[in-house]
Design a protein around this nucleic acid. Structure first.
Lengths: 277, 277
DNA sequence: CGCGAGATTGACTCGGGTCAATAGTAGTGG
DNA sequence: CCACTACTATTGACCCGAGTCAATCTCGCG
């Protein structure tokens, strides 16, 4: 199989399970992860805890389409994505979805529930998923005796905040083309860091979901992808993306950004979009 | 004085200092706050700590225009706004500012520095400010022995994240009018909760800064305020805002929101903007 | 094979960005 | 006190990027 990620339906679970045996251990029908596994997953320097082998966190599985938590539901634990793809959404007073993120391996879920003790967003599995359950109480108690874990928690929360800020920056200042380009670059990076191909991958979400995430309509997303395809930066076919010119995607500049102080702003975007390299 | 907030120039410092004596205590030329003061400021149930009178946190003053911290600067402490107004900004690779927030009394600054140990945003005083310095090390050490403080920290971090998410939702889905309206409502609420008038206040930031914050141009902000003024929802005069119809501002609906599933979308915004009540 | 969800494209519209001229305000210094 | 200067705010004219509406097209599935 050349597929860069776990895909489709039936065969998945087997792949999932067999591959996850590396990090987790089978135990009464479910999987368990140690603190070390979790730190690795979060890219946090491992904290040597004496009895860390005893500290196991249970895994939970969700099928594509299932909700991990909903808005207003009582908060009691965080989740770490062990495998699979999800989306988190906000739902406004008229029932419109606003996609906030597309969590995947190593991402954390549920942080928004800490302060009010209610989840303020909804997490939905886009594919079959294997999540590690982190009971918040257990976690904080543990952190009290293990300074490094405590730091890890602060780090993760802060990191989420910085990510969200970057998102605001993007929504506030980038053109549609730049947003889509950056979205692709980010995905590419994520896949690379998960050990998959950074050049060839499948989107796990619909155009509608991408649009919501980027503050655009699904038509604009579709058209922009087609345009990138047109000029050879990528090859799109439905959910399949092949990146042909990562640099061009990275260099896609914002349109002369309005509230820009600097005088330079003469170049047309069309030209900048795909520089003559 | 009927002024709803500290305003203008010279007399300020005196007002500032005399009013802050309530919560802080003068000490070798600076002010200090106890943990209780801080919890009150953050709207967090106070944690009775035996020796809390010994635990004092120093204040720092900044004049309008001064930077509290800059991007890339080494992180070592958080700040709580005791009085004054600030802005936090992100600066992109071309030097463009993106305003992230307008911190005021009770808000916390610097959270984005925790994970990388470098501030990832810049905080600038928009007026003379009095901030409480919270050395992060000291804070976390303290939290280790005082569970409630520990919870408070988690709460504050999570709260910031939720706020940022709401911002993303707004930027992703609301029209210019709705953004400006919501901005005014939020300010009104903030002022009310600080004990000032919610109906009559001065903006502390320029149109340019508001525009950046809302993902709009300064012209659009100006025009929208003028439009609200036109139909009598508010009275604007430069930086002075008087809110005449808070409900109308709150009810300003998003434009038929594109990625909206629901069929209802016939009503023109013009009509909805200022409902026939 | 036909159905339905998702994706693509085209034609049209308009919200809001761009450019530019004008006016109000504040701070400075003679 | 008043000019001089530098911001900041307001407005108008224009236009383009992206949203809206709608007609196919594709693909997986029962």
């Amino acid at each position: 199989m050349l597929h860069t990620q776990i895909s489709k339906t039936k065969p998945i679970l087997q792949i999932l399970h067999s591959s996850s045996l590396a990090a987790g251990r089978q135990c009464q029908g479910r999987l368990w992860s140690s603190l070390k596994d979790i730190c690795d997953l979060l890219h946090i320097p491992f904290v040597a805890v004496c009895d860390d082998e005893d500290l196991l966190f249970q895994h939970v599985q969700f099928k594509a389409g299932q909700r991990v938590h909903t808005i207003g539901q009582a908060f009691d634990s965080l989740y770490i994505v062990h495998s699979g793809f999800l989306k988190t959404v906000l739902i406004d007073e008229y029932g419109n979805e606003q996609v906030l993120s597309f969590p995947m391996k190593g991402d954390i879920l549920g942080v928004d529930g800490i302060n009010s003790r209610l989840y303020s967003s909804e997490a939905v599995a886009l594919s079959d998923c294997d999540l590690i359950l982190l009971p918040f109480k257990k976690l904080t108690t543990l952190a009290r005796t293990h300074v490094e874990l405590e730091n890890a928690i602060y780090d993760v929360l802060s990191r989420e905040l910085v990510r969200e800020q970057a998102m605001v920056g993007m929504l506030g200042a980038l053109s549609a083309e730049a947003r889509v380009a950056r979205f692709l670059v980010t995905l590419s990076d994520r896949f690379a860091s998960m050990g998959y191909s950074s050049k060839f991958f499948n989107l796990r979400m619909t155009r509608h979901e991408i649009g919501s995430y980027l503050g655009l309509t699904l038509e604009t997303v579709s058209r922009t992808l087609s345009a990138f395809n047109e000029i050879g930066m990528i090859v799109v076919n439905q959910r399949t993306i092949e990146i042909k010119d990562l640099e061009a995607l990275k260099n896609l500049r914002r349109l002369p950004p309005s509230r820009n102080r600097s005088k330079q702003s003469k170049e047309k975007l069309a030209a900048v979009a795909y520089p003559v390299q």
